[in-house]
Amino acid sequence: MSAALEFLRARTIFALILLLALFVGFVELVRPGTVTPLWVSNALMFAAPLAIMGGGQTLVMLTGGIDLSVSAVATGSAYLLATNASHGDFYALAIALSLGAIVGAVNGIGVALLRVQPLVMTLGTGLMTGGVMIVYSQQMMASQPHVPGLIQTLGAGKLAGFVPVDLFLWLIVGGVILFGLHRTGFGRLVYAVGDNAEACHLAGVRVWRVLFVDYLICSVLASITGLVLVGGTNAADLSLAESYLLPSVACVVIGGTSIFGGRGGYGGTIVGALILTVLTSLLTLLDVSEPAKQILFGAIILVLAAAYARLTE
């Protein structure tokens, strides 16, 4: 018993995977015959955008920060893509991604150079982005928004009718994040800044550069998430990614990244995103009402976070 606990303590990712398997088993128990290859394929397709957004959130939370503008950026990017698609797909894509770059740069400047609290800074830029998008949507009434076919394929397509296309994007993004965090100098600095920024300063690291690039990457990933989402729904509206904000933080926390920074990683976030997706699916299956769903959702996250804290004590 204690040996098993010791093992889980050293490799919390196994505990998370075990938990994921437990939830999947529960789904099968509630309605036998649900867990089919198609169900798995769908779960992966729905988990991908959350996991991509969670990747950016992981990078930011590893430095001890947080990005609350991700959902506004994702929504805005999706909307910009749809409303500019008539000018050409690449043009629309560039406009959409540049929103992420701009908001990310503003977040970076605020947090890294002006030393605004990340929570406050990104809350502010998130609200501003949302407001700007509303004004923009009122100007854009005339034009007919549509989602480019490429993006529709990305968000909803399945290769050979089975493998979701966004899984490939997730694999690429995930691979880059994992490699970047563990095998590059920048990744080392993300952890180092989160653990002790003063130590980095004393070691000759210009901490603001690390933070700036970090927030920039996070926002661009949020932008990409928006594209995947709008591809999936094929309809751009201004509440598209609203419901993704808190799950993007929750999957990082469930994945074991410390909100104080310096500890954790993307591996945990991946499993965290899968757990949240399966959990949503489970609650839908149980046919609970929306308020009850929210209560359960919140309670389960709390229990997981508490258990995790106990485990890593």
Partner: peptide
């Protein structure tokens, strides 16, 4: 002030 307490000796 100059250590990363949660990181390894190597890092």
């Amino acid at each position: 002030t100059s250590l990363l307490p949660q990181r390894s000796v190597q890092e």
